[in-house]
Amino acid sequence: MSGYRYNNEKINDDRILWAELIGGDKAALGQLFDLYVSELLSYGYRICRDTELAKDAIQDVFIDLWMYRSNLSKDVQVKYYLYRCLRNALLKQIDNAQVSAFGIQEADSLEDPDASPESQWLATESDTRRHSQIARVLENLSDREKEVISLKYYSDMKIRQIASLLNLKEQTVANTLQNALVKLRKHLVYLLVMLLSSY
């Protein structure tokens, strides 16, 4: 489980690297890659649930950055821009392959049909098991809710950025986040009760 990152210096760094990239510095491209590859992998994987697809799309994004560097705008939020490129690249591919994804449809295909809170938490036998069940709580969210949660808590994006990334209104994103948290809280209360009663 990778942790959270809080690199404020990243933001200053990446603007410099971005300018160098536009100026034709290949090393800057490599450094941007190093800086963002792991969070892009997480984000890409969460969109398509396919590691290879995510890897390919990320490579394409960086190749395109280089090939079209002279057309890039100097004044962008680099991280947001990279997420946006990756998302577009993946959606294009997913569209072709007709795979369900975050945001494309509010698919509930990933939900386990009998994933009621009860059935999920009754058999909390071991830590590993509990761990995977916590992960399953998140599976009760719709794809869009998961994507918003991921962008908010994992990628530290502002509602405004999430809205623009997903082509949604800010209010829609705020509502989605609120609904997701309410859902999670319901499962969580159940979880806490189970934990307490098991001691």
Partner: peptide, 21 residues
Amino acid sequence: TRHLPEPNVSGEEIRAMKSEV
């Protein structure tokens, strides 16, 4: 939210991706 799904990609695979780029 720490339990969001994570891809399983090794450091070596990441280096290979970079080389490929």
